[in-house]
């Protein structure tokens, strides 16, 4: 082994190997390069074997030089490998690019009927206020639907609710109010009575944009000692704020229901014009959403609560009407048409 030749060969090999390395593009040739320059049969390996032929001084010097060369090539190789990996990943990513405008995997999306949505909203509000939710029969007796609610037979107040009769004494309830008496009878003598009653009711009306022979109601009833009409107003105000927004206000107007005294129609500020006056509210700024009042002494007595000791308030509202207001539906019949193109619009939860 010739030290002088080695002094020329080492730099030559370095530049040759590095030049070759930088031109390599795939793992297979890269592996071949490693075998050729760093493998057991490589020139470097040959040189290492032959180091013993040199003088001690030369041997040390040559050893260091060969070692340095090896390290250079090894790190160049590692570096090149890393570059290659990166390129590989880049290529792969490029190949895997998607058209992100295509639709996502469809999820099963069902829709609650708008009446159900409103009913659930109403119920949630009242349940949070401590009301219990109960249900009653849709086929009622004349006694519960009318007489115990202070509407005797042959009373003109019966004209307020045209009735589907099934027999002399049985009918389809015209309102959820019969449950006022049924609930009080069940609860008697306990207080407080604090319930809402959602359910279907029936009236013998021709169907048109604002009338339906079948619709829903939510009845409310609170009975205790010392229940005041101001409690009715406050409770309904809380409800209106929860349903329509914190800036809501309610207005009570005198009215007549045989089973409440005093009676009131309850308006909320028009949600379309915020009370400024518009077509929906007939320029009044208010929209009627329910009827209410203090439970009539005769009704308390009929249900077994002495009107001298107890008082209460009751209210009844129509979810269809509220749904129509809230969703801008102009014809109640749409709610019973069940056109899926209509119902499938009710997907947003807030």
């Amino acid at each position: 082994m010739d030290m002088d030749k080695l002094q020329r060969d080492i730099p030559d090999l370095r530049s040759k190997a590095l030049a070759e390395l930088s031109s390599l593009e795939d793992r297979r040739t890269l592996d071949a390069w490693r075998v050729e320059y760093l493998g057991k049969k490589s020139e470097i390996a040959q040189w290492m074997k032959m180091l013993g032929n040199l003088s001690p001084d030369d041997r040390r010097m040559a050893g260091q030089q060969i070692h340095a060369l090896r390290q250079t090539l090894e790190s160049a190789f590692t570096e090149r490998m890393r570059e290659m990996d990166e390129l590989e990943i880049e290529r792969k990513l490029r190949e895997e690019t998607l058209d992100i405008t295509l639709p996502g995997t469809p999820q099963a999306i069902g829709h609650l009927h708008p009446i159900t949505r409103i009913l659930m909203e109403i119920e949630d509000i009242f349940v949070k206020m401590g009301f219990a939710v109960v249900e009653g029969p849709e086929v009622e007796t004349d006694a519960y639907n009318f007489e115990m609610l202070n509407v005797p037979k042959d009373h003109p107040a019966r004209d307020m609710q045209d009735t589907f009769y099934l027999s002399e004494e049985l009918l389809l309830r015209t309102h959820t109010s019969p449950m006022q008496v049924r609930v009080m009878e069940q609860m008697r003598p306990n207080i407080p009575v604090k319930v809402i009653v959602p359910g279907r009711v029936y009236r013998r009306d021709e169907d048109d944009a604002t009338h339906s022979h079948a619709f829903h109601q939510v009845e409310g009833l609170v009975v205790d000692q010392n229940i005041r009409m101001s409690d009715l107003k406050g409770t309904l105000e809380e409800f209106a704020k929860a349903l329509f927004g914190p800036e809501q206000a309610v207005r009570l107007r005198p009215s007549f229901f045989p089973f409440t005294e005093p009676s009131a129609e309850v308006d909320v500020r028009c949600i379309h014009c915020k009370g400024q006056g518009c077509r929906v509210c007939k320029q009044t700024g208010w929209i009627e959403i329910l009827g209410a009042g203090m439970v009539h002494p005769n009704v308390l007595a009929a249900a077994g609560y002495s009107p001298d000791a107890y008082s209460g308030f009751a209210f009844g509202m129509g979810p269809e009407r509220i749904a129509m207001l809230k969703y801008g539906i102009s014809d109640i019949r749409l709610l019973y048409q069940n056109d899926l193109r209509f119902l499938r619009q009710f997907s947003q939860l807030r």
Partner: peptide, 20 residues
């Protein structure tokens, strides 16, 4: 005038609401 009636809440023992 019904407007003269204030808005209050019933003074009842607090009980959680229930659903059957």
């Amino acid at each position: 005038g019904y407007d003269a009636i204030p808005a209050t809440l019933p003074m009842l023992a607090n009980a959680p609401g229930r659903v059957g």
